[in-house]
Design a protein around this nucleic acid. Structure first.
Lengths: 185, 185
DNA sequence: CGAATCATGTAACCTGTTACATGATTGT
DNA sequence: ACAATCATGTAACAGGTTACATGATTCG
């Protein structure tokens, strides 16, 4: 239920429309949070009802009017409270690890293929994050600490995941005849 | 939508009741998949309707009858197809990283506190996984490759997360006066 | 000329969680 | 005596996704 707070967080920096918020997520938060547009509009309506945001209607000329959302003091208070509250551990649901767990049901080649495909995906993700990091370092503007930390968290996790998959792929490829794949679990 | 496949995967090893499945998840899959009991029963009903499992009603004496679920050939086929199909990247939703991202809105001490609490949690999780690994290594039975891989994935991720948080906590604690926390994002 | 972008939203659906309900048995 | 465990499930709700709908503008 923290999409509400994610929206409040973005609005704390500057007022934005629902459309803008969707882009803000896709551009700067995609690697740790994805938000659906239908859900953003629904949640904004709830925030309005709760008095945590206020709408300013900006005429859009030929396009539909933009409904720019402003954070109210109540919204800011709710955001602060959430930031300070203990974080509920997220529910884990990782389809790829589930596949690994069940992979004894497959012939060894298929397991190796599974790992290879995921490794490719993981490398691409890591590269994308590194590109963002490089771009930020190159820009003259100073990087706020919060986004920098979030990015570093993403880089570390992605790198660790690539490392695991390389190890797993190597093991799967090298020891079909002998050897115990559970040597050091 | 892969709870279906997770259930089929467990049933591929041996027939189980809904109750057994819940325990199987909690015991051996909790760190990469959590399943709610209400949802398990609902999904089992769907699998029955789809002809992928068949129910054997086992009288429970004084207790309610156990409804033991058996995988059908159709169920096994669906499972195999899913295991071989490309894995859809999971939707990311990490409230803690979101908080980090927004943590410029807080005083530095509160950010450090946030990190400290998460570090404690992460260390506990890593310790729990290490305990499982130690227990498995100590047992005489050989460990199947699938579960061993899944466990290793969990260990690696948890260790990387602890590493990140230690780094982040150190940085947050040491440089309140000067210094750029975005040195190497 | 067709596709993408800007900008809004609604309706229907699927998935997951919480709370409720039952009733015997075993352990403290 | 009280709580936990065994074993089933239902109802209501919350959160998230897909598909549908509109209509001008800009880019290739």
């Amino acid at each position: 239920m923290s999409l509400r707070h994610a929206l409040l967080g973005f609005l704390a920096h500057r007022p934005l429309s629902g459309y803008d918020l969707k882009r803000a997520f896709d551009q700067s938060a995609a690697f740790f949070w994805t938000a659906d547009k239908a859900q953003i509009y629904r949640t904004l309506a709830e925030l309005q009802a709760a008095g945590q945001v206020e709408v300013e209607r900006v005429p859009g000329g030929p396009r539909p009017d933009r409904k720019v959302q402003h954070l109210t003091p109540a919204g800011r208070a709710a955001l602060d409270a959430w930031l300070r509250a203990p974080t509920d551990p997220p529910a884990r649901r990782e389809p790829f690890v589930l596949k690994l767990f069940l992979s004894d049901l497959l012939p060894p080649d298929d397991r190796a293929a599974l790992i290879a495909v995921e490794l490719e995906r993981a490398r691409a993700e890591l590269a994308a994050l590194e590109a963002i990091a490089a771009e930020l370092r190159a820009s003259p503007e100073p990087i706020p600490a919060g986004p920098a930390l979030a990015l570093r968290a993403g880089l570390r996790s992605a790198a660790a995941w690539v490392g695991f998959l390389e190890e797993a792929g190597g093991a799967a490829a090298s020891e079909p005849p002998e050897g115990d794949p559970s040597q050091s679990p």
